[in-house]
């Protein structure tokens, strides 16, 4: 019988992704590009929110958008129709984006952007485990999904910097309590910033835009 050897390894299983994410973040900081990773279940309104944010921020600020989807280039086309650059990543079945997929696009991303938005694959579970090199992680929760979601999908809410409650114009028709959603999310993540928006009426978009502009200024002060 061959002799056995036990080796203590202690290596992070997501270490290779974290390493690439760190390189991406450093590169973006050098260029002064504030990068945001948008997470939510499918249909929570990520693309529509991006369209609204672009209307507020463009052309004062230069914006680029990476669209992650399993199939189709529909979302990138919607973003381009707003007059900003968009790059589509189709994962062909994978349920999340990984840092190397973002890294592969780097040669195409202009160095003079102000904001780079990464719209992750619609999924409230898997994308939460992958750092993409972003500075801020936004998790969206739409009112029709229900106010009990934070504790059902804790990883997305514990790793986010901000929660954006979307489709608030529908609240009068739903048993959705935004206070309860906010409280659940804060129990998991006391530092979480919370915004409530409607991409239909435009309510709350200004506040969210102002927050992003403030974060862009902070990034550029720190990495000046």
């Amino acid at each position: 019988m061959s002799p056995k050897k036990e080796v203590l390894v202690l290596k992070d299983l997501l270490g290779s992704n974290k390493k690439i994410a760190g390189e991406i973040r450093a590169h973006l900081e050098e260029k002064g590009i504030l990068t945001l990773n948008l997470l939510s279940s499918p249909g929570a309104g990520k693309t529509t929110l991006l369209e609204k944010l672009i209307e507020h921020l463009h052309p004062t600020y230069r914006i680029g958008v990476i669209e992650g989807d399993i199939e189709t280039t529909r979302d990138a086309e919607r973003i381009r129709a707003k007059g900003v650059s968009a790059w589509q990543i189709t994962t062909g079945g994978a349920c999340h984006l990984e840092a190397k997929m973002v890294g592969n696009l780097f040669s195409q991303i202009p160095a003079d952007l102000d904001f780079l938005f990464i719209e992750n694959v619609g999924n409230l579970v898997c994308p939460a485990s992958y750092d993409l090199g972003e500075h801020l992680r936004l998790v969206l929760l739409s009112s029709p999904e229900g106010d009990d979601k934070p504790k059902k999908y804790p990883k997305a809410f514990t790793t986010a910097d901000a929660l954006v409650i979307t489709k608030i114009d529908l609240i009068p028709h739903l048993p959705f309590d935004p206070q309860r959603a906010a409280q659940e999310a804060r129990e998991l993540n006391p530092e979480l910033k919370i915004f409530t928006v409607s991409s239909v009426t435009g309510e709350g978009i200004q506040e969210l835009s102002s927050f992003l502009i403030e974060k862009l200024k902070e990034l550029r002060t720190i990495h000046a």
Binding site: S2, P3, K4, K5, E6, V7, L10, K11, L13, S129
Partner: peptide, 14 residues
């Protein structure tokens, strides 16, 4: 929050 490979046991050829 960790997800780590702690240890492995391997068979070494003589």
């Amino acid at each position: 929050t960790e997800l780590i490979l702690e240890k492995v046991e391997l068979e070494i050829d003589e």
